[in-house]
Nucleic acid binder design. Structure first.
Length: 261
DNA sequence: ATCCTGCCGA
DNA sequence: TCGGCGGGAT
């Protein structure tokens, strides 16, 4: 078995490819997910601004809670840049309270709107039209926007062909055997998908959604339901568990005991 | 008690 | 690297 490819600076935390390469393998993974879960209406939003607000609010929060906050903002007529920009912070805090971290998130939304009105006169489309790499860098300078939030905005608000990766992606693809470690950095994971999939925004956006569906229902952190998993035939994890348990699918494999990052 | 479509500051 | 942010669902 060849040694995993790891280089110091921009190390590629990717295992040796299966026969046929990662591209066809990844397509196979997506096709299985799509057949199992169906196309995901992943980001229920009517406007780009609504996507952006949701991207801030959903950080570390179940979407059901975000949905309450979004509906409250809509009911107050604040789901629009100028209105939210001029709304008193105390009101915003009250409305988004169900989404948790409501003081932090109010400050961060205000910071985004300050930037939007200072640099773009409040013209959201002008911001979203910028070249993808420049837009990403600009978003990352804003407080409360890390790589996942920035890429969610790029993909689901700006419609760019960008793969959003997250904790689900890290867990599942480490179990599948694609990443050599559970600590694979965000940018390395994203580069893996970008390198081996077509730059198609609909495909990448739905792939992320499929991964989340799998991570919530089947590839959960403890006691994953490998018996019901549509990826079991291309996954290293059930084989490892079976080997570790001497034939039975019980307990957990070594993969689970390393801290993710 | 734990988890949830993270990020930041110390 | 770790704790804080914080409410709602299970």
């Amino acid at each position: 078995m060849p040694a995993p490819v790891r280089r110091s600076a921009d190390w590629i935390a990717v295992a040796p490819p299966p026969s046929g390469g990662w591209g066809p393998w990844l397509r196979g993974v997506y096709d299985r997910l799509l057949a199992h879960f169906g196309y995901q209406q992943w980001w229920p939003a009517e406007t780009a601004f609504e996507v952006i607000v949701g991207a801030y609010l959903t950080q570390n929060i179940a979407w059901s809670n975000v949905d309450r906050a979004i509906r409250a903002l809509r009911g107050a007529g604040l789901l629009e840049p100028a209105a939210l920009h001029s709304a008193p912070p105390e009101l915003v805090e009250t409305l988004i309270r169900p989404a948790g971290y409501f003081r932090q998130k109010t400050r961060r939304l205000k910071a985004f709107l300050d930037h939007l009105f200072t640099c773009y006169g409040g013209d959201l489309q002008a911001l979203l039209r910028r070249p993808a790499d420049e837009l990403r860098g600009e978003l990352l300078t804003l407080p409360g926007v890390g790589p996942e939030t920035a890429d969610s905005i790029l993909c689901y608000a700006a419609g760019r062909p960008v793969m959003v990766v997250d904790a689900y992606t890290r867990r599942t693809f480490h179990r599948l055997g694609a990443f050599t470690g559970p600590d694979t950095p965000y940018d390395a994971m994203q580069a893996f998908f970008h390198a081996h999939l077509p730059r198609d925004g609909v495909l990448l956006g739905d792939f992320h959604a499929q991964i989340v569906a799998l991570g919530k229902e089947i590839c959960v952190s403890r006691q994953p339901r490998c018996d019901a998993c549509p990826l079991a035939d291309v996954c290293a994890y059930p084989r490892e568990r079976r080997a570790a348990a001497g034939g039975e699918l019980v307990g957990t494999a070594d993969r689970d005991h390393v801290q993710a990052r």
